[in-house]
Design a protein around this nucleic acid. Structure first.
Length: 500
DNA sequence: AAAAAAC
């Protein structure tokens, strides 16, 4: 009788060694010092190894990346080729993510877990030169991690063939829907073999997500861990009511007072994020902004500097609310309350991870009261109203000029936000890091693009029930114009694309 | 109302 014998009702804590993973994978895990799987890993790995489709409700920080990539590597290892020939390395595992940063992080994990195996992987995303990605794809890879748009680009250029994909992972599926990726997802799925294993992960379990799961997954096993506000239980939350004109100074005050060395500050707008980062720098706090108007290089440099501790503050839009795996963050600050209450949960989910405690401080103004009520309704708790101790609003009304550019910039803010950028010489000269809109990669100036022309694919909503149509057998790519021009409702897109 | 993602 072994001493590990335990009753069925109380199974022993599983270990990675219990899953029957290949020795090469186990070696990679011990390289990283991992022995005990997280709850989602313990649930997902055996199910995926059985070949079942999975609908996983899990936030980032629960370890879901390993939850799908470990069994994926194991499955693909079964027919792994050691040949150098690209033809012997068809893409068999495909992982789709909503943001570029998330794609990079997932790819880093996959590379680490597969390092002792002959499997090759690469990451493919927009904002970067196609060429290195093309070369990697042409050399032959078993696993591709991609954002949808760039992947389709590569497919159209025949850099990659998805006709042999056995496993598809849709990470942060809810986010992909929010971002209007459904048509792209549909087009990608039409390129895959009908017989394949599908894994879908989502932080939320909305009706739309269920519909998506119904149309893309076959008899899925549902795995659910840590409901969305469970994360918040370990996070101490506090809100401070402040005057609109004091917001930036209050952020600087909070950072100094709590001696924060690693904090993400969330802003609702790109321009607000850039301005706040600049303002903090002027106050002697090392900060960089990360948002969608910065070049990919700038985004990666900011993230890198933050992870290395070279800067104390990462000022981010919701590009970083989900997915970014920045571990051990003791604190996040909301410079703006998010318009979407669910985003609040995602933002504060950056802290209090993996059992650690965390702090989430938010500042809000009179006009944000309703947002605060919505948030409290969602998380089903009242957030402590904090008193700002020791904060002295600077006397700025008497002589604004001695406070420099940023005071003057404030009156420009509304105009700049409305016009989508500084396109009439309103930019403060002091900026050392001009926005990408003003600069080409070669460094010369060019006019800012007219952002107003960007249109959200709002017409893809609302979601309507659908009868899934026959999946198409052909491997051709429907032109995107067919989707854009059609303005078809989501239901129609789920039912298959129009013939080109 | 805003953000993200392909050129």
């Amino acid at each position: 009788m072994s001493d590990t014998n335990t009753p069925d009702t109380a199974p022993a804590t599983p270990r990675f060694s219990d899953f029957g993973l290949a020795p090469e994978i186990q070696r990679a895990l011990s390289d990283q010092g991992y022995t005990i799987p997280t709850p989602i890993q313990a649930q997902a790995i055996p199910v995926v190894l059985q070949g079942r489709d999975v609908m996983g409700a899990a936030q980032t920080g629960t370890g879901k990346t390993a939850g799908f990539s470990l069994p994926m590597i194991q499955q693909l290892l079964a027919h792994a080729s050691t040949s150098m020939s690209p033809a012997r390395h068809p893409v068999r595992g495909l992982i789709l993510t909503p943001t570029r940063e998330l794609a990079v992080q997932v790819a880093e994990n996959v590379a680490a877990y597969s390092r002792h195996t002959p499997l090759r992987s690469c990451v493919v995303f927009g904002g970067m030169d196609m060429k290195p990605q093309t070369e990697a794809l042409r050399r032959g890879v078993e696993i591709v991690i991609a954002t949808p748009g760039r992947l389709l680009d590569h497919v159209e250029q025949k850099n990659v063939n998805l006709g042999q994909v056995q496993m598809l992972v849709m990470d942060e599926a809810d986010r992909m829907l929010d971002m209007g990726f459904l048509p792209d997802l549909q087009r990608i799925i039409n390129l895959l073999p009908k017989k394949r294993q599908n894994l879908m992960f989502s932080a939320t379990f909305s009706g739309e997500i269920k519909k998506l799961a119904n149309s893309f997954l076959t008899d899925p096993v549902t795995i659910e861990v840590a409901r969305s506000n469970a994360t918040a239980d370990r996070v101490t939350q506090v809100v401070y009511k402040v005057g609109e004109e004091d917001k930036r100074d209050v952020v600087a005050h909070l950072i100094r007072k709590h001696e924060l060395k690693q904090v993400i500050v969330f802003s609702n707008t790109k321009i607000g994020a850039s301005r706040l980062a600049r303002s903090l720098e002027q106050d002697g706090i090392k900060a960089l902004a990360i948002h969608g108007d910065r070049t990919q290089q700038e985004r990666m440099a900011a993230l890198d500097a933050f992870k290395k501790g070279e800067i104390e503050v990462l000022v981010a839009t919701d590009v970083a609310a989900r997915g970014l795996d920045i571990s051990d963050l003791p604190c996040v600050i909301n410079y703006d309350l998010p318009y979407n209450a669910e985003d609040y949960v995602h933002r504060i989910g950056r802290t209090g991870r993996a059992g650690a405690s965390g702090d989430a401080m938010s500042i809000y103004t009179d006009s944000d009261e309703r947002l605060l009520v919505d948030i409290e309704k969602l998380i089903k708790q009242t957030i402590t109203r904090g008193q700002l101790e020791g904060f002295e609003p600077p006397r700025r009304s008497r002589d604004a000029s001695d406070r420099g550019e940023r005071r003057r910039g404030r009156s420009d803010e509304v105009r700049a936000d409305r016009s989508g950028g500084f396109d009439r010489g309103e930019r403060p000269e002091r900026s050392e890091r001009p926005d990408r809109s003003e600069r080409s990669d070669r460094g010369e100036r060019r006019p800012a693009p007219l952002r107003r022309e960007k249109v959200d694919p709002w017409f893809l909503k609302p979601y309507e029930p659908t009868q899934p149509a026959e999946p198409k057998a052909e491997q051709t790519v429907a032109p995107r114009s067919a989707i854009k021009a059609g303005k078809r409702p989501v239901a129609a897109l789920l039912g298959g694309l129009p013939k080109a």
